[in-house]
C-alpha cells in the first residue's frame, strides 16, 4: 500500500520538526528513514501513523486522504522503540489485543496469534508476562502484536535502538527476512546508517526537518546528494577541498598526475584495516587501506607519498 506525504510541516513551539516534506513510499517496500537525532524522522513516522497531527500538508495511505483519520482507524502497525508492551497482559494477550478490539471470533484470534507467535519464535512464551522476556523478545512480541491486525503499513520507530549490539544485529537480519516473507509496506526509523544500508530497500535521509535524499542504499552511498548525506552515511576526509571516503584514497610512492604530495604522520593497524594519517600541507587527510595494500607500499612514518581520490 503506497504512502504519499505532501507538503507536511510540523512545529513544536518555535522548533521546526518538519519543513514542507514530500515523500512517496512505494507498495511493499522496506524503507528506512535515516538521519541524526532531532532531524524529524520520528515525527514524520508518527504523522504517518496518526500519533501526531501535521500543522500543514496531507498524508494519503493507499490513495485515500488519512490526514485527519485518528490512529485507531488507520489500520497501521506501530512498533515503539521501548516496545510499549502491555505490562499487565501475557504475551498471548498482547498479540491478541488488536484482534480482541476488532471483536474477531475467539477461534480466529487463537489461530492468528499462534501463527504470529510462531513467526516471531515466541510460541513457548505465550503465557509469560512481558517483564519475563528479554529486550529482543519483547520487541519481537511488539512486532507480532503490530502484524496481528494485518496492517496496511508497518511503522517501526527506532525498533532496535534500545537493544545491545549483538541482539540488534540478529533482529536486523531477521526483520529483513520477515519482510521478504510478509511483504507489508514497512517504514522504519533509525539513526544508524549501517542498519539502514543493510536492511532497507530504500533510504530516505532526513536532516533538520528536510529530506536530503531518497534512493537505494547503493545510490545514496555512492552518489550522495550533498556533503551532509556523504558525511552521515560513512567516514569522510577532505582532500583538495573536496570530501572523499578514506577508502577511496589511493597512495602512491612516486609522483603522478592529479596527485597531492603528503607526508605520512601516523600508521595504525585496526584488525584487517590500516589507518594512515597524512599531512598534505593545508589539509590533514586520512586514508583507509587493507593490510595487504599497506604492506605492499612498505609505508613508514615520515615517508613522502602522493595521494589522489579514485572516486
Amino acid at each position: 500500500m503506497s504512502i504519499e506525504v505532501s507538503s507536511v510541516g510540523k512545529r513544536f513551539g518555535s522548533f521546526v520538526a518538519l519543513d514542507d516534506v514530500d515523500l512517496t513510499v512505494a507498495d511493499g517496500r522496506l524503507t528506512a528513514l535515516l538521519g541524526p537525532s532531532g532531524g524529524g524522522k520520528s515525527t514524520l513516522l508518527r504523522i504517518i501513523g496518526g500519533l501526531e497531527q501535521p500543522d500543514s500538508g496531507t498524508v494519503r495511505i493507499n490513495g485515500k486522504d488519512a490526514t485527519r483519520v485518528p490512529p485507531q482507524r488507520r489500520n497501521v502497525g506501530f512498533v515503539f522503540q521501548h516496545y510499549a508492551a502491555f505490562k499487565h497482559l501475557t504475551v498471548y494477550r498482547n498479540v491478541a489485543f488488536g484482534l480482541e478490539i476488532r471483536k474477531r471470533p475467539k477461534a480466529e484470534i487463537r489461530a492468528r496469534v499462534q501463527e504470529l507467535l510462531a513467526l516471531v519464535h515466541l510460541e513457548q512464551f505465550a503465557d509469560r508476562l512481558p517483564e519475563q522476556l528479554s529486550g529482543g523478545q519483547r520487541q519481537r512480541m511488539a512486532l507480532a502484536r503490530a502484524l496481528a491486525v494485518e496492517p496496511t503499513v508497518l511503522l517501526l520507530d527506532e525498533p532496535f535502538g534500545a537493544l545491545d549490539a549483538q541482539v540488534r544485529k540478529e533482529l536486523r537480519d531477521w526483520l529483513r527476512r520477515l519482510h521478504d516473507e510478509v511483504h507489508v509496506t514497512t517504514i522504519f526509523v533509525t539513526h544508524d546508517q549501517e542498519e539502514a544500508l543493510e536492511v532497507a530497500d530504500e533510504l530516505v535521509v532526513i536532516n533538520q526537518g528536510r529530506i536530503e535524499q531518497v534512493g537505494t542504499p547503493a545510490d545514496v552511498y555512492d552518489k550522495p546528494a550533498n556533503d551532509f548525506v556523504m558525511g552521515f552515511l560513512g567516514p569522510v576526509t577532505r582532500l583538495a577541498g573536496r570530501l572523499v571516503r578514506p577508502h577511496d584514497l589511493e597512495i602512491l610512492t612516486s609522483e603522478a598526475p592529479d596527485t597531492t604530495p603528503a607526508e605520512v604522520t601516523g600508521l595504525q593497524r585496526i584488525g584487517f584495516e590500516v589507518r594512515l594519517t597524512l599531512d598534505a600541507g593545508a589539509e590533514q587527510p586520512w586514508a583507509q587501506l587493507t593490510r595487504g595494500q599497506a604492506e605492499d607500499l612498505r609505508l613508514a612514518i615520515g615517508q613522502h607519498v602522493w595521494i589522489r581520490a579514485t572516486r
Binding site: 513544536f12 513551539g13 518555535s14 522548533f15 541524526p36 515525527t43 533538520q208
Partner: peptide, 20 residues
C-alpha cells in the same frame, strides 16, 4: 514551560514527547 527551541537531540526528544 518553554517549548523546545534548540535542535539539540535532548531538546528535540522532549519536543516530540511533549506532543504525547
Amino acid at each position: 514551560v518553554e517549548p523546545a527551541t534548540a535542535a539539540s537531540p535532548a531538546r528535540t526528544r522532549a519536543a516530540r514527547d511533549a506532543s504525547g
